[in-house]
Design a protein around this nucleic acid. Sequence first.
RNA 1: GCGAGAGUGGCGGAACUGGCAGACGCGCGAGACUUAGGAUCUCGUGGGCAACCGUGGGGGUUCAAGUCCCCCCUCUCGCACCA
Length: 834
Amino acid sequence: MNDPSFVGLPEGTSISNVQLNSSIMYGAKVGHYFNSIPWLGVELEAFVTAPHRPAQRLTLNAPGIGTIQQDEPGATNRIVVVSPLIMVRYQAGAFEPYAGVGPGVFFLHQEQFTASGSPSNYSQSNTGYGLNTQVGLRYRLTGHVSMFGEWHKATLVVDHRRVLGLLGEQGTAVLTLAFEIAPAALGTVLANEEIVDGKSEVGGFDVIRKPMRQWVLKITAYADRLLEDLTLVDWPPSTLEMQKNWIGRSIGAEVDFVLADQNGAIRVFTTRPDTLFGATYMVLAPEHPLVDVITRVEQKEPVAAYRAAAAKKSDLQRQELEKEKTGVFTGGYAINPVNQERLPIWIADYVLMSYGTGAIMAVPAHDVRDWAFAHQYALPIREVISGGNVQEAAFTDTDRGKVVNSSTGDGTFSLNGLTSSEAIPKITDWLAKQGQGTRAVNYKLRDWLFARQRYWGEPFPIVWVDGEARPLPEEQLPLALPESNNFKPSGTGESPLANLDQWLVTTDPTTNKPARRETNTMPQWAGSCWYYLRFIDPKSATQLVDPEKERYWMPVDLYIGGSEHAVLHLLYARFWHKVLFDIGVVSTPEPFRKLVHQGIVLGEDNQKMSKSRGNVVNPDDMIDQFGADAVRLYEMFMGPLEAMKPWSTRGVEGVTRFLERVWRLMVDEQGRLSHAVVSAQPSLDHQRLLHQTIKKVTEDIEALRFNTAISQMMIFTNEMTKAQQRPRSVIEPFVLLLSPFAPHVAEELWDLLGHQPSVSQQPWPIFDPAMTVSERMTIPVQVNGRLRAKIDVPVGTSRDEIERLARAEAAEWIQGKESKKVIYVEKKLLNFVV
RNA sequence: GCGAGAGUGGCGGAACUGGCAGACGCGCGAGACUUAGGAUCUCGUGGGCAACCGUGGGGGUUCAAGUCCCCCCUCUCGCACCA
């Protein structure tokens, strides 16, 4: 586990410090038998022989598996176990697996590792600075917990220019000024996720906002498709919901309110144009550019003070002040386009500049925020939807209630009597005809700030010449980071690269003019957006991915990854993929068809593992104590893959006992093949048991229900332990079933059984559906729905016969009662209603 | 507050489209083999002496509800002044 050489990492680097991206891809080779693969949505025929049939293509991806760290073993290990398990099972016969695993060089915690540890390690790395190296491998289960050996060391040069250029072609990459949040004391710029409660996560410094040059990707241009195409994927409901909320699409109208005593108009966005007649005031965000224009002389001072105070607050600080709303009257007025009323214009920080137009019409009767504000400042509240008491609270239940008090002064236009859903399109059309508004859609989703002021990230292949950004030519790619031990912030807000003159100062390759390199680097998400494409074609130096391979493998059929990526990574990757789709680099609109989040493993006390709680379980210790197979098996047995589960060392002991029982099933105390293993014909019962076990294990793996697959193997083992004779024809297929779960034990057993080659190269056992059913059946007998007896009959028994037997069996419950009805459910149950 | 998911023995968890609740494992109990056993094997193990009662609580549909419908409670995760 801790042998770093297996990924070609530099000496001194522990796997504990490296984030692995693993990706597993399964391809059809020669057909085999499957019932179905539910999440692939196909029914496969038995004994399919045609090679490379598209329906058999199976691409799995288990990236972003999280940090392997001593203090979070469970989170990582379960996915590390699952991936090869699935792979081994599908490899056994129909599929040719491909797996890619690689250290992503540019993840944030590696920067921390590097900064705090020994950066020179990385300078020795054959991965090289500035190259995001991925290592492809073919799994073979020879190592420890999972997947080591036979590495195809395919250096994957992550050439973001190629992708960025493609994004640029699409017009999605934009150089812009954006506000970044920087704690002055740290002299660096923080990503949003590094700010906690308005202070820097590290050091707890106050942060301020300052404008800086930034790269932004226009993900908002794809907002609609990112939303709509969620119907194309099979993802957990919670993740779909989170993505929908993150995109935050809302439909409404933009309406212009002309200023009362001067030229100009305020444009607002509202989802409730049906309440337009109920507007009693307006609010601008403090940063709104029109504030200066609107503010009257006598209000200048309080307005300026309020704006200054608001500027000091971060978004998060603003949100903390949830309870009490504050604001200041500007002295200005605007005209409500529907009834020509003069509405006072306020500024208040409960209106965000970043959403909609940064201005609202306030309808206190039907919006809780506006109501609170109006209440605070004694502004009028006018009911326009009946059904509540708007003096007591905002009435927002639009499904009930009718529009009232909503007609123009001349009576030519009225919404009165309509429901909200009828009124909204009507008034939107009317506003459009008047030239005062349009239907509009808004998103919470913002454009993607695609630049970090760090050393540790892919540099932009851009040089600045005469104040102009120019891309590097193809032959100068990829651009590597300079080697350095100086990771200190530049102090100017630029990245540490700004201090590294040798790298920084260059000449423009086309004009030979002096040039300066771009000092921004890419965020950690850059690589994870598309590395799955590189895993398909890791060695290609000339293109992102071979179109033929891409068409064959994509989309990824199963993606196993942590729920912490539910929005950011998974949304960014989808966006990027769509851009590539639009320009023809990929052939599918969505990259990941089915998504499963593995649950993390908690400590024995049912709390998250942490050093401070002292409940950390180190997987290496467990492996030393119980062996890799037992640990693997337990991690699969502890419960559903998606669920968060507490670790139980007792539970590992339990599965260890199971493995020992399996061992003793066929090995004697001298370590030789047991005399109980015979070549005799198995009994019918044993054959049935085997076929039932094959069926259950096969189907459960396909449905990712590993815990119940294991329990069936336990049942098999318990039964066979009782048998004096254990026929090979029953035992041997069972070893194959066990092999994905406990590869080492299975391998040794296979060898002891006298077989070559490896157990992992054997075809997966096939079950005969006819052999999975017994010739007898037990029919529960109910009287009025209560279980009163059971009868055991041959399968072919007629209903009448069953009823006759049941009647005798349950006689004491039916006697003397009038029989109303007899319900017989075929082969299931018999119920007397009396 | 809004959204999503989940509540089943002492514990982790099973139960396909409504059809024997508690598979399998842990723990616990009894027995066997043993000088011994925290090893192994066998048997038992939801509660209650019983009739019966039992899947977070309360209603309902049904011959039959862990499963379907309505109301409520608790926990986990996510979002949080998004107009």
